[in-house]
Simulated assay, not measured.
Amino acid sequence: MWLSSWLAMLPLAAQVLAGSGEKSARTDENGIRRIQLRTHTLAPPYLDSDMQSRWWDFGGNTIIRADQYIRLTSDRPSQEGWVFSRLPLTATNWEIEIEFKVQGNGNLHGDGFAMWLTKQRAQPGTVFGHVDKFEGIGIFFDTYKNNRPGTVFPYVMAMVGDGQKPYDKANDGKDNEFMGCSARGIRGASIPTKAKLTYFQDKSLKLELMYKQEDQWVVCFETTDPPTIPSVSYLGFSAETGELSDNHDIISVHTNNLYDTKKKTDYTDTGKGSPKAGRAKRKSKKSQKSKGSWSWFLFKIVMIFVVAGGVYVGYTAWRAQRQRKSHRF
Rank of each mutant, 00 (worst) to 15 (best):
G81H: 06
T62G: 06
N61L: 02
N30Y: 09
D28N: 12
W94V: 03
S5K: 15
S49A: 14
Y46N: 15
Q79Y: 03
T92G: 00
T41Y: 07
L87N: 07
F58L: 08
I35R: 07
E29V: 07
E97F: 08
W82E: 04
A18G: 10
M9V: 04
K101M: 08
T92A: 07
R34A: 06
G60V: 01
N107A: 15
G19L: 10
G19E: 14
F84L: 01
N93I: 01
G60H: 02
A18P: 04
I70E: 10
D50S: 13
E95W: 08
L12S: 13
E22I: 01
N61S: 14
T73D: 05
R86V: 05
D28V: 05
E29T: 08
L47Y: 06
V16Y: 03
Q52N: 11
P11V: 07
Q103M: 03
A43Q: 15
S53G: 05
R54G: 09
N107D: 13
A25T: 09
T27V: 13
I32F: 03
R33I: 01
L37D: 05
R33L: 11
W56T: 12
R34T: 04
W82M: 11
P77H: 09
T90I: 11
D67C: 01
T62F: 05
L89Q: 06
V102D: 04
P45S: 04
W6S: 11
S85F: 04
T90Q: 14
P45C: 05
F84M: 03
R34K: 12
W55Y: 12
P45T: 03
W82P: 00
M9I: 05
G104S: 13
L72T: 04
I35N: 00
Y46M: 06
Q15P: 01
M9R: 13
D57A: 15
R34I: 00
P44M: 11
I98W: 00
L42D: 10
G106A: 15
G59A: 04
A8C: 02
T62K: 02
P11T: 06
G106C: 09
E29S: 12
N61P: 00
E22G: 02
D48H: 12
K101A: 14
L87I: 01
S74K: 06
G106S: 15
H40S: 06
A18M: 12
Q79F: 04
S85A: 15
R71D: 08
G21E: 10
